[in-house]
Design a protein around this nucleic acid. Structure first.
Lengths: 118, 118, 118, 118
DNA sequence: GTGGTCTAGACCACT
DNA sequence: GTGGTCTAGACCACA
């Protein structure tokens, strides 16, 4: 499966976000290993360094830890940690902007929530 | 006043969005002139070419029009046009993504829209 | 001038440490630009990406900020910030280990600091 | 007891340094045997090859010697030998760098020695 | 001119 | 097998 890359964002960022989403959604469990750099690179037909860059970000953010010679493993508590971080970020950074936009566009809660069932 | 540029987005885009927001919010009225490239460049300490690029985008999107020798003027009907466009874009492109994120973070769109998140 | 790289440490790390040292020692002042990636790459005969990596670290650590299209500039307050960080790190992480080593080797920290070891 | 490995340094090096420290500190005496590769590997949950590598280093450095069929034994004079080597290395290689750092961070001997009592 | 991204391919250390 | 580093060279967006 080769994902459709959004050409606006760097691939390594999209990879990073993909892994984050998968951990948040429970598809990758804590303590589990990430698929190896080479494997992902082959599967997605992307340069290994690009994968590395995404994986490096995950290490920098304390989501994943290296076991030398073995691979990268999701840290215990990572899911909770990320949920808190993302939630904080969403509520403080993104939501106020979204609300401003909603107001500016004169949209109603009713309209917006209607789409929720689709 | 020199705004704080978001170093993630190009300045010309931020300028463009700023003008759009001001028109939507009614701070700049239809038929009014935009401040001149030189003036904005001086005030914001930004390269005039960068301002031009933002203004060019506004022309491309049919929001403003050039009156030779006078400057750029907001077209009649611009506010309505933009409102429709932005609304369409928001509902189709952005809102579904936002909803997905809200779900992932285990938040309630209903409560957020009611202002109960704090 | 081509520096002698320590083959034990990655070049990008040595570059990073070099810049940090230069800021701490006042050779690069706050508000000044770093020499461009290409320039350093040419001068040191190192791949531009390697320089980039070092510069990226400095951005991540809030020591330097990007001005798009212009280059990287030392943030105001960077010297003080780094001094605090490095001092903290030295006292808490490194010095206890050094003391342990000194004790193990049956040396006297007092005499070493007084310059009497030779 | 499983030690906390420093993921920056290879495990075999950390093992080597641990043994060196134990000999220097007198926890392992000259003429005594090192614990077997298998035993350490099981206890620390580390690949036996990694232990072997550490033990090989100790042999290369003339600190221990193999007695066929019996195991590895700390050589007589090992403690003295290592003390001299490490002292030499510390004074010539490490201490000058440490002093440079102390100067750069503007730390005083008084501050540093105060922590010695902790 | 600036930094950022990606590729293809090589090499290394660690387990 | 694992991840990390570096090169040479290309291309892009931004100011």
């Amino acid at each position: 499966m080769i994902p459709q890359w959004d050409s606006d964002k760097p691939i390594y960022l999209q990879l990073y976000q993909q892994v984050v989403a998968r951990i948040l959604d429970g598809y990758i469990l804590e303590g589990e290993a990430l698929p190896s750099v080479r494997k992902v690179a082959a599967e997605y037909q992307v340069n290994p360094i690009t994968i590395s860059k995404a994986y490096q970000m995950l290490q920098d953010e304390q989501i994943v830890e290296k076991q030398r010679g073995k691979g990268l493993f999701v840290k215990p508590g990572a899911q909770e940690l990320m949920l808190d971080r993302e939630r904080e970020n969403f509520l403080v950074q993104q939501w106020p902007e979204i609300l401003k936009q909603i107001t500016r566009l004169n949209l109603s809660a009713k309209q917006l929530l209607a789409g929720e069932h689709s």
